[in-house]
Simulated scan of single mutants.
Amino acid sequence: MSDSSENRQSSNIPPTDGSGDGQAPSQGSPLMAHLMQNKVETTLWLTRIFTVVCAIMFMLPIFGGNPYSFYQRTLLATAATSALRMHQRMPHVQLNMDFLRLLFTEDSCHYLMYCIIFLNSYPMTMSLIPCFLFALLHACSFTKTVLNLMGPTSLMFVRNMITKLEAQQVNILRFIASTEIFLMPAAVILVFTGKSSFFLPFLYYRFLSLRYTSRRNPYNRIIFSEFRQVTEYLCSKPQCPGLVRTLSFKCISIISRLAPVAQAQ
């Protein structure tokens, strides 16, 4: 959708080549110039949009196609986004332990590992939720820039959706953290039902411990703390059966011992 004010102004300018399409290059060139000048950000934007589309195609199979294919494409697109983002954050590769320790503090490295873990596992909708929501959130900023270059009133329904998404950013990040946590028992269930490798819970535990100590995303620590407070509050009530109380406190003790120490910000 083009801006109406630009159309009125361009109507007073005669075409220079007699084709009547003299205004098309002036409308498209700012957008294309911006995309070409920001090739990395444009690629990230495209991979995120592709992630969102593939995740929707998997979650809503009414559009046809092989759901497992869309499941893998979602994870591969997320892995490509994570790898490119990781290269942005740490462009100079070094073969030493300090570099590796710094590498594993990056959220993009966490999700590259996440995609590798679930790529060949039994397809679960829950495992695509973090990929879908992160791609949706991170694509918003660049999408707004693209819309502004297209015109200040272009695709207002998309602008309104972006505004609503950004207003719910904290709630979305909390939901992602909760999904990451509940994927741990889901991975254990997959093993016992014979739908996944025995190593999946151990690999996912490593991912979850990295998310817990993330420097930029504290929501895993926040959600873990809130779950513990709610559980202790409910178990302290007289109505709680003794067996449930004992099992709950033992689970809290085990999880607390397994939790890594978060580094100071």
Rank of each mutant, 00 (worst) to 15 (best):
A259W: 12
H87Q: 13
I254S: 07
I255P: 08
R211L: 12
F249N: 04
L234Y: 07
I254D: 08
E6T: 12
F70C: 08
G194A: 04
V261M: 13
S256R: 12
Q9S: 13
T193E: 12
F224T: 05
F132A: 05
R73E: 12
P14M: 08
F70R: 06
M59D: 06
Y219F: 13
K39H: 10
Y114N: 02
P67R: 10
P201E: 01
I49F: 11
Y111L: 02
V40R: 00
T47L: 12
D107L: 08
W45P: 03
S178C: 10
F63P: 05
R73L: 15
R257P: 00
Q23V: 15
M124C: 14
M184L: 09
A135P: 03
A139M: 08
D17I: 03
I117V: 07
Y205C: 13
S4M: 10
L128P: 01
P123W: 04
L128D: 01
E226G: 03
Y219G: 02
F58H: 01
S121H: 03
L258C: 09
R174H: 10
N120E: 04
V40A: 00
R73D: 14
A79E: 11
C54W: 09
L200C: 01
P30C: 05
L147M: 02
T163C: 09
L102Y: 13
Y212H: 09
L35A: 10
E6P: 03
L234R: 05
G151R: 03
V191K: 05
L46G: 04
L133V: 08
E232Y: 10
F99L: 00
T16W: 12
N220V: 15
F63A: 13
S225Q: 03
T246G: 11
A262D: 00
T78I: 05
G194I: 03
T153L: 10
D3A: 06
A259M: 15
M150D: 03
N7R: 15
M1E: 06
S26T: 08
